[in-house]
Write a protein that binds this DNA or RNA. Structure first.
Length: 984
RNA sequence: GCGGAUGUGGCGAAAUUGGUAGACGCGCCAGAUUUAGGCUCUGGUUCCUUACGGUGUGUGGGUUCGAGUCCCUCCAUCCGCACCA
């Protein structure tokens, strides 16, 4: 056998695994099951970069480890193949999204397969495949045909609701959702309704319902975005402006599950950060709704929501959101002008300004007064934009002594700030929301504490019919429609203006072909372009498609039974696999995908279609691998607000360009045009040479030896600093911390800088794994990605260190092939030293895998190889178990050696070596012996020696004479296995 | 503002959970082999010091025979939410 050639070995075994279906998971097995899931990728045109596989490698290690432990492992992969980028590309080029998506998936599969993942590819799913989205549509129809019964606290079929209506009308039915959208009727009235009227009455009960909703409308993208797709008032994708607009929309009633989604979190083995984010997102608050009767408006009350009813005696004014429905009625003629002006001013401020500016106090008095329901005191009614129309009732009772915002408002408009608790302090400085102390100035709760006061007041208000305890959630229903082409068509059609669900038998409702992917001239979604696209040839279909998260909300269930044509997942199969044991993916899905998936699962559970309580028991967030962006600055002189300014916008370039530009022989001050041409030329030349653009290390680094250690020419760095102070302005967010940016060379007008940020094709900071695999092999790349640092951490990519793990693999190979010759192992028995090395690895690696601490496992292997190399070990008894241990990490190398050692079956079916603790215990143990914590010598004791024996041995020796300067020992502390400390 | 996290060499990082801080790898230095090296091997590498020795886990304090680890204070950085009543 020649020297270690990873590329040959890897190709051979990947083909072998595929041919022999080595990783095929069995839906019937006596073995215990284990389900390892990766968050499936969106197949983008750029292909994989080194950041993508990080989580996949980790989950693959766990999968292979669990197989060695004798479990039946389900480890699938698929593609979230509906989405915006393919559609944008289609609009630009006219290419069908299905075509580009297919091409991208092929690239992804090729790249994934060459890393040797143990996926069961026969279970691959694609969300854009009609045989898959048939079931996404089917689940939508289930939602459409369900309502949420608060009495049973679960979803039930709409047919049950119809039965109730027929029997007793709408009275007494408690359903999740907004009762104001619904109308009351008797059983008789129900019977009299036409079909159209009945469906209209049912619609606001459904879990998938259509309603006029304030949505985030993005004109540039021509679609509606969900809240988590909007960042700072701009679309997450593209950064276009987003406005609030009232539109008829399909919604999913996730709010019905708010409490259960919250409760369930406690049972999950997830990172605290993610659970906390979901808790905040759901935003449960326990409080009360209190009615304040309005003076001079008989029968009109203002409902406020508060979490601190106990402070109601301190409520000196009410504040309504400017959009509140009563504003118009309440405003007195004298205040009308001021109020109108304030509302107009609020509207002029964009959502973004309003969010950005939380410091300025603004508001206006309506002229009207309400009565405090507990003591009848008149309280003025104000408007202010710090009260949100969308939360609670859109009105608050302001307690300036207990709430900082109310306090600032009161100070600003000179309203009274009465104390309500004897524990409140510094009320001339700030509000004090304390719950300590006894209430004062508080009528019926004077002298009580927080808990009693709250209970007393709620009881009192309930009795008077002016209030009740109430739980509020911040969570909003999920908007489900997108005005887009490349998504699942919503299986709804309209008959006489009324929405009907498509019959299950007619699924899938296949996405029709259209000739252009833009919205129509009349502003309809792209599906409006479809010709002759009608249900049963006569009814118009719904034209919006489902959002990106629809298909990804249940894909993990389809993996269990991907080819089932009769059911979304077979009953027995679902029971067998149950929930996902380990879910690996990025933290960016904390409140989106992970919440929607849980919602769908709970819903399916209510329908008896799934059996576990939660879909994902354990979640690990792998950190992101960041890239180093390089850029050059182009100095520009511009007019900015009548002022001449020098600007230096950065231009992203590949690392090679920075390398070339910073070479000593690159001199002169090129004119702008010339420079641009040069840039393009260099990019092109590099593209030709390396096939791809990206930051693979191919040029020598000009100054110093590494990216980060920078023996930068001191003179150059000085000049750059001076120039910086003088000329460079922060003109682009990508610039970030200029102070920290490194400047490799200053040449008149151009300077090179870098920054660590997310890998992105447009920033030329992507490192392609193919090239690394070609050079070092997939095993080396796998090991290196794990070795890089803790799995969950964000870390910059640095290709330099990969040689370390490559060397390790070579050394490992050489344990079996001395002088790179033929396999040479002996059947001698292992020595105690060898057994110790081996069993330390068995123990440590198993512990590390349980803790997902793969970087330390790799170190453990390296130490073992160094030790065994030093010992000259050639023994099968030591080396063979070591191969098994290494196989989850470097599967190709391990498989090759395993077969060389004479095994016919794949190493995946080997048994994990058993750990024997006794091999780690030595006859003699060396302890540090110290005086007052200062170690003076190392001494050997029998491994079985007791603390008392060790103490005696030290005191009987001449240790004290030599080190204690005649002082007498006060005590001796013996920590078995650690240290002997004599205190003098 | 609220919530979550993180601070250890030139760099990525370890530290058996309170026991000789810096394992392992990169880089660097020296040496060996080699025509040569970007291959391989050996030794060294917290910092200061020629050495002896001292110093050292963001800051300041505390508990302890002993603290990177536990408690309190402050500082810095990152992430999430953000006028949620």
């Amino acid at each position: 056998m020649p020297a270690y050639r990873p590329q040959e070995i890897e190709k051979k075994w990947q083909a072998h695994w595929q041919q022999h279906h080595t990783f095929r998971a069995d839906n019937n097995s006596d073995k215990p099951k284990y389900y390892v899931l990766d968050m499936f990728p969106y197949p983008s045109g750029a292909g994989l970069h080194v950041g993508h596989p990080l989580g996949y490698i980790a989950s693959d290690i766990v999968s292979r480890y669990q197989r060695l432990q004798g479990r039946n492992v389900l480890h699938p992969m698929g593609f979230d193949s509906f989405g915006l980028p393919a559609e944008q590309y289609a609009i630009q080029t006219g290419q069908h999204p299905a075509v580009t998506t297919e091409k991208n998936i092929e690239t992804y599969i090729r790249q994934l397969q060459q890393l040797g993942f143990s996926y069961d590819w026969e279970r691959e799913v694609r969300t854009s495949d009609p045989s898959y989205y048939k079931w996404t549509q089917w689940i939508f129809l289930k939602l459409f045909n369900s309502w949420y019964n608060l009495d049973t606290d679960r979803a039930e079929p709409v047919s049950a609701l119809i039965a109730k209506f027929a029997e007793g009308g709408s009275a007494g039915i408690r359903a999740a959702g907004d009762d104001e959208e619904r109308h009351d009727f008797t059983a008789g009235q129900w019977q009299m309704m036409s079909e159209k009227q009945k469906l209209a009455a049912l619609l606001p009960y459904r879990l998938a319902y259509q309603q006029d909703t304030f949505v985030n409308w993005c004109a540039a993208l021509g679609t509606v975005l969900s809240n988590d797709e909007v960042k700072d008032g701009l679309s997450e994708r593209g950064g276009y402006p987003v406005e609030r607009r009232l539109m008829p929309q399909w919604n999913l009633r996730i709010t019905a599950y708010a409490d259960r989604l919250l409760q369930g979190l406690d049972t999950l083995d997830w990172p605290d950060a993610v659970k906390e984010m979901q808790r905040n997102w759901i935003g449960k608050s326990i409080g009360a709704e209190v009615s304040f009767p309005v003076q001079d408006h008989e029968g009109t009350v203002i409902k406020v929501y508060t979490t601190r009813v106990d402070t109601i005696y301190g409520a000196t004014f009410l504040v309504l959101a400017p959009e509140h429905e009563l504003v118009d009625t309440l405003t007195t003629p004298a205040q009308r002008g001021a109020v109108d002006e304030y509302i107009a001013a609020t509207k002029r401020r964009s959502e973004r300004d309003r969010m950005a500016d939380v410091k300025t106090v603004s508001g206006v008095f309506t002229g009207a007064y309400a009565q405090n329901p507990v003591d009848g005191t008149p309280v003025p009614i104000w408007l202010a934009d710090y009260v949100l129309a969308g939360y609670g009732t859109g009105a608050v009772m302001a307690v300036p002594s207990g709430d900082q915002r109310d306090y600032l408002f009161a100070k600003h408009f000179d309203l009274p700030i009465p104390a309500i608790s004897d524990a409140q302090k510094d009320l001339d400085q700030q509000a004090d929301p304390t719950k300590e102390g006894r209430y004062i100035n508080s009528g019926i709760v004077n002298g009580l504490g927080y808990k009693e006061a709250t209970a007393t007041l709620i009881a009192y208000l309930e009795e008077k019919g002016l209030g009740k305890g109430k739980v509020n959630f911040r969570l909003r229903d999920a908007i489900f429609g997108r005005q887009r082409y490349w998504g699942e068509p919503i299986p709804i059609y309209y008959k006489d203006g009324t929405a009907y669900g498509v019959a299950e038998a007619d699924l899938p409702l296949v996405l029709p072909e259209i000739d252009e992917y833009k919205p129509t001239e009349t502003g309809e979604p792209p599906l409006g372009r479809a010709k002759d696209w009608k249900y049963k040839g006569q009814y118009e279909f719904e034209l919006s498609t489902m959002p990106g998260w629809a298909g990804s909300s249940w894909y993990y269930l389809r993996y269990m039974d991907p080819h089932n044509a009769d059911r979304f997942v077979g009953e027995d199969v679902e029971k067998y696999w149950g929930q996902v044991d380990l879910y690996m993916g990025g933290a960016e899905h904390a409140t989106g995908h992970l919440l929607y998936s849980r919602f769908w699962y709970l819903f399916l559970k209510d329908l008896g279609l799934v059996t576990a309580n939660e879909p994902f028991q354990k979640l690990i967030n792998q950190g992101m691998i960041l890239g180093r962006s390089n850029f050059v600055y182009r100095l520009k002189i511009e007019w900015d607000n009548d002022e001449l300014k020098l600007k230096a916008p950065p231009i992203f370039v590949s690392k090679q360009i920075v390398d070339v530009l910073s070479k000593e022989d690159y001199k002169g001050k090129p004119e702008e045009e010339t420079f641009k041409k040069q840039l393009i030329l260099i990019q092109k030349r590099l593209a030709n040479r390396f096939g791809l653009l990206g930051g693979v290390e191919t040029c020598s680094i000009p100054y110093g030896q590494s990216d980060f250690a920078t023996p930068l020419n001191a003179n150059v760095s000085h000049v750059v600093d001076d120039i910086l102070d003088e000329y460079l302005f922060r003109t682009d967010s990508h610039l970030g911390n200029l102070d920290e940016a490194e400047f490799i060379r200053y040449s008149d007008a151009y300077t090179c800088g870098w920054e660590i940020e997310k890998m992105s094709k447009s920033k030329y900071n992507v490192v392609n794994p193919d090239i690394l695999t070609k050079k070092h092999g997939a095993d080396a790349l796998r090991l290196y990605e794990m070795f890089l640092g803790p799995l969950e951490q964000f870390k910059p990519w640095n290709t330099n260190g990969i040689s370390g793990v490559a060397t390790f693999l070579k050394k490992f190979w050489r344990l079996f092939h001395p002088e790179d010759g033929a396999l040479a192992v002996t059947d001698e028995a292992a020595s105690p030293a060898e057994l110790k090395t081996l069993h330390r690895v068995i123990q440590k690696v198993a512990q590390d895998i349980e803790k997902f601490s793969f970087n330390t496992s790799v170190s453990t292997f390296m130490i073992a190889v160094n030790e065994l190399t030093a010992l000259g070990t050639r023994k099968r008894a030591v080396l063979e178990p070591l191969v098994v241990l290494l196989s989850p990490f470097a599967p190709h190398l391990a498989e090759e050696l395993w077969h060389e050692l004479g095994h016919a079956e794949s190493i995946s079916f080997a048994a994990y070596p058993e750990f024997r603790e006794e091999y780690l215990v030595e006859a003699n143990v060396t302890y540090p012996v110290a005086i007052n914590g200062k170690v003076r010598e190392q001494r050997q004791f029998a491994a079985t020696a007791t603390a008392a024996e060790i103490e005696a041995a030290v005191l009987e020796s001449d240790f004290l004479t030599r080190f204690a300067e005649g002082k007498a020992p006060k005590k001796v502390v013996v920590v078995p296995g650690r240290m002997v400390n004599v205190v003098v």
